[in-house]
Computed example of a mutant assay.
Amino acid sequence: MLGGAPAMWWAGFERVTWTGEGGEPTWFETFPGKAKRGFCPTCGSRVAAVDCDVPEIGINVPALDDASGADLTPVDASFRRNAVHWMPPVPDTQRCPIG
């Protein structure tokens, strides 16, 4: 990666069951009392986010075992210049209603 933040593809869920090696992520409070990020306890990859003003847990979609569902189709893309070459670009984006 050449500077900036890595490209990520997030989906929101009301409930999550953690599976796989290590189980639940290791949580780090990015902004105390406002936001925390979850990292894989085995490899350190970013897998989840919780923000106090959003009622869902955000999951980095490539961390899912199956990301093929129609409800996981991206609608927006941030940090496009840092997108990995092996993920298809988001064709038609719309502005996120949050933020």
Rank of each mutant, 00 (worst) to 15 (best):
M1V: 14
L2Y: 04
G3D: 13
A5I: 09
P6D: 07
P6K: 10
A7I: 05
A11D: 07
A11E: 07
F13W: 06
V16R: 09
T19A: 09
G20I: 02
G22Y: 14
E24K: 02
E24Q: 08
P25W: 02
T26W: 12
W27G: 01
F28P: 00
E29C: 03
T30K: 02
F31V: 11
P32Y: 08
K34A: 11
A35N: 00
A35T: 00
A35P: 00
K36T: 01
K36Y: 08
R37A: 03
F39V: 04
C40Y: 10
C40V: 07
C43R: 03
G44P: 04
G44R: 06
G44Y: 07
G44Q: 12
S45V: 14
S45A: 14
R46M: 14
R46V: 12
V47Y: 10
A48V: 03
A49G: 15
A49T: 13
C52I: 12
E56L: 08
I57N: 03
I57F: 01
G58F: 01
V61D: 08
L64G: 05
D65N: 11
D65P: 07
D66L: 01
A67W: 15
S68N: 06
A70C: 01
A70P: 13
A70V: 06
D71L: 03
L72T: 07
T73I: 09
V75A: 14
V75G: 05
D76N: 15
D76R: 09
D76I: 07
A77C: 08
S78K: 11
F79M: 04
R81C: 01
N82T: 14
H85F: 14
M87S: 09
P89W: 02
T93W: 12
Q94T: 14
C96L: 10
C96I: 10
P97R: 11
I98V: 07
G99C: 09
